[in-house]
Design a protein around this nucleic acid. Structure first.
Lengths: 130, 130
DNA sequence: TGAACATATGAGCATTCATTCATTTGATTT
DNA sequence: AAATCAAATGAATGAATGCTCATATGTTCA
């Protein structure tokens, strides 16, 4: 938790003499940019949301249009209940919103950040050199 | 599964007459850009890898330096076994690699794609307007 | 008001998953 | 060879999770 020396001169993986069972310089280097607990929680929360096929496909489906629950249910071939449960989760994470119109709830992405983030991720993982 | 008309003229959310219980035009629009099953699997696989705090922190720790298992264990305050199990998972997903040097296994990120993807994600979720 | 429809939600269940514990493997050192 | 150290791994366990089923809520329409 507390700070060690910022001695980073030993830049390569070579060990000079007898290491004390770990590698403090490298640990110190790694520690410099470690995300805080809060950041870790936010990141994993978002990644967790996209780590499930149903939720990921919901986000993907909402990229270019809004859809009601039944539309999503039809499109994804999942039960209304399953979709609704996942939508609630995405709502609470503020990844989607909805507006009511009569009997229908029309869901759409929360904002362009969500859209951008998903599109970037998709592009990145689809890029040919990977 | 088969194709409906690509009639996208009705661009807003307004409904013209009697909808047949769902909204086929919007479903058709959404369907155009839906990821394939293979893509869904690849995406969720990667997101799942980053959806766990331990694994996410491992990736973060390896952003700027390589580390051995014991270093990671110390740095993250997790048992050697827990870290080792997660490293195996990350290895199989080709997010990290390792080289042996004596008794130590030094782990590092698999390639710059991993580094870039994580950095971008982190930047995006940290951007002030979000 | 009553029926049908769209959605939301609680409980239950089966599966997945992250950790621990015990043990094994492999390398170095004496 | 024996002891020690670093890492890997299998089994077990408890927690989290995603779905189904049944039901509730709320809206429209006859």
């Amino acid at each position: 938790m507390s700070i060690h020396s910022f001695d980073l001169q030993n830049d390569n993986e070579e060990i000079c003499c007898d290491e004390p069972s770990t590698h403090p310089e490298q640990i110190a280097r790694a520690k410099l940019d470690l995300p805080t607990d809060v950041e870790v929680q936010r990141l994993t929360e978002i990644f967790k949301a996209l780590a499930d096929p149903t939720r990921l496909r919901i986000i993907a489906a909402l990229m270019h249009t809004e859809l009601c629950v039944d539309d999503l249910s039809t499109l994804l071939g999942m039960s209304q209940s399953a979709v609704s449960h996942q939508l609630r989760l995405l709502r609470h994470l503020q990844l989607v919103q909805f507006r009511k119109e009569g009997k229908h709830s029309f869901y759409h992405l929360n904002d362009d950040h969500v859209r951008d983030f998903f599109q970037r991720s998709r592009d990145h993982l689809n890029c040919p050199s990977k």
